[in-house]
Write a protein that binds this DNA or RNA. Structure first.
Lengths: 234, 234
DNA sequence: CGCGGCCTTGATCGCACTCAATTCTAGTGG
DNA sequence: CCACTAGAATTGAGTGCGATCAAGGCCGCG
């Protein structure tokens, strides 16, 4: 299926105070005295498309905040089939379960060039015990994760193939320009919505033929949405 | 579909210190000084089978800890179909999202006789700001909710109808006697696994005919599991 | 006894899966 | 620059599983 590259590029030790996306992340509202509590290094790491950030069942000693790119969380069944359980975007945290569980619940795989801050669990725990500001941020993340998970079930895994694909198209709209949407490989889209890749392909083609979406590249990833209403009440 | 009764029976103001299931709940490891911080009344409330604990989109001013019974979280689609997103058991917390969101994300409906502690959000917030002990408990709940949600997707909504029903049977095994399992109405089971009630019925019948499960009542709820291995690798 | 709700079972239909062939793209090396 | 290749997407034909439509049974209750 998807080749798993294990390469990761260390880019240096991060200074959270000057982080470009600090307002989106876990440490958004820490103050100077909070930062003094950080006694372990926070690394900045890059992964290429298809690389595993970590594997299901692996030792979990750190969490990662996504700075750039998309990450899929994958559960693997015994019989080889796999299911994408959620997709994480910049600002989201990968592996929060490390705070409670010694092992990760799912594989995390880069869906594009990804860069992350790797934060030791000890840092989170120290800060969490002393900074009520971080608490709120952490709980917000959890809340977001639960809501996303429920949404995933209620929208992407519901109704006909036509509707599911429509909902993926809508979910993957760009934050800055909601008339654009970036899809994933047909196989990944299938793993998200419990469809076979051929079915996904057929339905994407159908929406295209109907003029509801319009390909912007030759590889079936970037599309322009011409009629989002038709997608919504498919 | 399911009739929603709005009756609820107030049973009195609870004293958390003497709560029978305190070791399972949110306030498990609060101490005497923590309890002094509770300035709003915590009520003990009962709901009958089918009653709504609260509705999707409603004002959220409190959370509820389940003391007895099961509760389903339901997302309703525009076209009237609905999807059970999760099932909550005693010790679980309903409506944690009230801490962040002014409205609830889903309907919560009693699946049996249910009794809950109704805790004002203000109490949680006060305690949370001052008791690190509650923090950990809260995060544990969030963690559990996310894991449950992911499990739900990966096991109940995966594979053939036969496998899905098998997984529901396994999931609903009793905590004290894992050879017994209590199912829900065929319609609810369908809403859990994205199947029609007729299909659920057929598959339950099939497992029964094959001798893998054995009905213990006449209404198709309580079953004895004779061969859990067959269910696991269906 | 009759009624209503739910479960069960049967017959048929259609959507998504399966198997398979073809096209397209990007990448590689001559 | 072009030929060749591997990987992905697309398209087609046929099958089968679960949905749909419908009838009948069982249980609890007034």
């Amino acid at each position: 299926m998807i080749p798993l590259h294990i390469e990761s590029a260390w880019q240096g030790t991060a200074d959270c105070r000057t982080c470009g996306i600090r307002d989106m992340v876990l440490f958004a509202d820490l103050n100077e005295s909070d930062f003094k509590l950080i006694h372990a290094p926070i690394d900045d790491i890059a992964f290429q498309n298809g690389a595993a950030l970590f594997g299901e069942g692996r030792q979990a000693g750190h969490v990662m905040t996504i700075r750039k790119g998309f990450v899929k969380l994958v559960r693997n069944a015994a019989d080889g089939r796999s299911r994408i359980v959620r997709i994480l975007k910049p600002g989201d945290v990968v592996g929060l379960e490390a705070l409670f569980s010694p092992i990760f619940d799912a594989d995390a795989v880069a869906l594009s060039e990804v860069s992350v801050c790797k934060i030791p669990v000890t840092v989170i725990k120290d800060l969490s015990a002393q900074s009520p500001r971080l608490h709120m941020r952490l709980m917000e993340r959890w809340h977001r994760a639960v809501k996303e998970a429920d949404d995933w079930l209620a929208t992407l895994n519901f109704g006909t193939a036509r509707q599911r694909v429509a909902n993926i198209i809508l979910k993957m709209r760009h934050a800055d320009d909601s008339t654009l949407t970036t899809l994933f490989s047909r196989e990944d889209m299938g793993a998200m919505s419990d469809l076979k890749l051929e079915t996904v392909s057929r339905e994407v083609s159908r929406w295209t033929k109907e003029g509801v979406i319009e390909p912007q590249d030759k590889i079936g990833r970037l599309y322009k949405i011409k009629d989002s209403e038709k997608l919504k009440n498919a």
